[in-house]
Design a protein around this nucleic acid. Structure first.
Lengths: 158, 158
DNA sequence: GACAGCGCGCAATATCCTTGCGAAGAGAGC
DNA sequence: GCTCTCTTCGCAAGGATATTGCGCGCTGTC
């Protein structure tokens, strides 16, 4: 874990909210010259603190009207079965996140689909078909209260 | 929902993966002149298809070693109680996402913390203290199998 | 007090963004 | 079939930005 000073944290905070800001304005925000700012930014990238940049797309605007969280139980838990499941998950573009969790269920999937028929195809044709899934329990998103692209950084402030 | 042609979809796909790409290279990727590319990009932004850009930060690199999903049940379900809960959630930076879901529990929270003591403070001092929460059920992330910043776009391809 | 290491700002060049302009193509109405 | 309109394109120019080399100043060590 590379050490980050207050300026680095301000850079990260700004970039988590405005990832496409110009280096010149970023430098002004954190009270640095543009060259010093660029060098810090490049260091954060090469050190792996910043892993990339992404445009945030409005789901409704691209016809993704339905989100679901699916809790999954695998039928078998040998390394091979898990690896096969992971590879399938990585290939399904509807799944934007998949975590192995403590608790009753093995995995939690976050899924974006156009509508219920689309979800039905995903569930029946993909998830429950030849992926080694014993049980799947779906919950649909009624309302998104918060969706922040920014990780918390407050715990690092000196 | 604004209509998006194939070029728009390619723009979105590229920008979801490389949000800080220069307009010149973006134009080359989608076989457009830089001016035409920029005008499409600005239209996607003003139409609300692209809502912003964000740097992706590696959680481990900023000392966030623990992720949890917390399922929450509210004590009361009047509009006022819900609004108060939502406002609290928006103020907690540890919570990067909060969704109201179908099923047994009212809300699902995605939480990033440094460690178990940090999570304990979050749970006891914030979530279970004066936020109107009747019950909370936590699951910790053992392994992140997939975390994609990109929404699926395949369903729109002609 | 001298020295090394680090991070900074300045300045110059190369690259990129941004806007105005005219042309080509698609679709509507007659 | 013709024309008119609307949209989107590429080109070009000027202004802004990114990127690099260089020298200075600060800090900690010996």
């Amino acid at each position: 874990m590379p050490k980050l000073d207050r300026t680095d944290l301000r850079l990260l905070a700004v970039l988590q909210g405005e990832g496409r800001i110009t280096n010149a304005e970023l430098a002004e925000r954190v009270s640095l010259s543009s060259s010093a700012c660029l060098r810090r930014l490049q260091r954060l990238e090469t050190d792996g603190v910043i892993t990339g940049y992404a445009a945030q797309v409005e789901p409704q605007a691209v016809g993704l009207g339905l989100q679901a969280f699916v809790r999954v139980q695998l039928a078998r838990h040998e390394a091979g079965a898990i690896e096969r499941f992971v590879e399938k998950v990585e290939g399904w573009e509807e799944v934007v996140a998949c975590h192995a969790l403590t608790g009753d269920m093995d995995y939690l999937l976050h899924v974006y689909v156009a509508d219920l028929p689309h979800f039905s195809r995903f569930l029946l044709d993909r998830l429950l078909n030849d992926a080694g899934v014993a049980d799947a329990n779906s919950s649909f998103v009624l309302r998104t209260v918060k969706r922040s692209p920014s990780l918390p950084l407050g715990h690092l402030e000196g």
